[in-house]
């Protein structure tokens, strides 16, 4: 069996009466795209927050490359090689596009506490940043102020920043959101090739993308994983059809 890079073991998280995560156990193997789907309010974002470090689970653990990172703060997880993208773009709007990506390469390389020397003239950082921009097709916008970018370009920049970290694992929170058919199609093609470099845990509402991309799919309903399997298995699973896909079939 292929190596498991990222794993959650029986994660539980409760907000008052709401059980946002209920014994969630997931794994992400080398070379795969593992999609996490579920209706709104199923607890996908809460789960991502616990994997990336923004929230601590009440019980259970997060394992990354064999190491228990449950108590590790977000920056330490990022340094260990876990790169996330945000559902709502969290970019530095006053920065140029290139500065946003250089921020990523700087974070990955370290040496942040240098008070002299122009960071935007640092060849090593720039090369990696340009490379990441190139991959998502934003090179020609490198000197644009981020606030001037369209929604779709911001989504691309989100991915570029994650790339610039050269991570071991990607955790992507709805990268296709609001992209439109063409943009979504292009990103799907790009992520398809990306999984060879680092596996992707993909939270996504775009079902076409999910079924086209995912090696495995997990379905989250009311904080609980009700099924995990290949696209065909998930499609055929009666429980999933009832809880989630059913509405679409009926339509």
């Amino acid at each position: 069996m292929t190596e498991v890079l990222l794993e959650t073991r029986a994660i539980c998280k409760r907000f008052g009466a709401l059980q946002a995560s209920k014994e969630v156990s997931l794994s992400l193997r080398a070379g795969e795209i593992h999609a996490l789907i579920g209706p709104n309010g199923a607890g996908k974002s809460t789960l991502i927050a616990q994997i990336s470090g923004a929230l601590a689970p009440d019980s259970g653990s997060v394992i990354f490359e064999g190491r228990d990172i449950t108590r590790l703060p977000t920056p330490a997880r990022a340094k260990a090689g876990l790169a996330r993208t945000f559902q709502i773009s969290a970019l530095a709007m006053e920065f140029t596009v290139l500065q946003n990506v250089v921020l990523g390469t700087l974070g990955a390389r370290g040496g942040v506490y240098r008070f002299f020397g122009n960071v935007m003239r640092d060849k090593a950082l720039l090369d990696r940043a340009e490379d990441a921009l190139d991959q998502v097709g934003l090179s020609e916008f490198r000197n644009f102020v981020t606030a001037e970018l369209s929604h779709g370009q911001r989504r691309q920049l989100e991915v570029a920043v994650a790339l610039s970290l050269q991570p071991r694992v990607f955790v992507m929170d709805e990268p296709m959101a609001g992209l439109g058919a063409e943009g979504s199609h292009r990103l799907t093609g790009f992520l398809d090739g990306l999984r060879q470099r680092a596996p992707i845990l993909l939270v996504e509402h775009d079902m076409d993308a999910v079924f086209a991309l995912a090696d495995r799919i997990s379905v989250l309903v009311y904080g609980e994983v009700i099924a995990t399997g290949t696209a065909a298995e998930i499609r055929a699973n009666p429980e999933v059809r009832e809880a989630y896909l059913g509405e679409e079939d009926a339509a």
């Binding site: 990336s52 470090g53 703060p73």
Partner: peptide
């Protein structure tokens, strides 16, 4: 300046 504009991003890049 990144930490001022978007602390969540700053953390996410380490």
């Amino acid at each position: 300046q990144a930490a001022r504009q978007t602390p969540a991003r700053a953390e996410a890049v380490g």
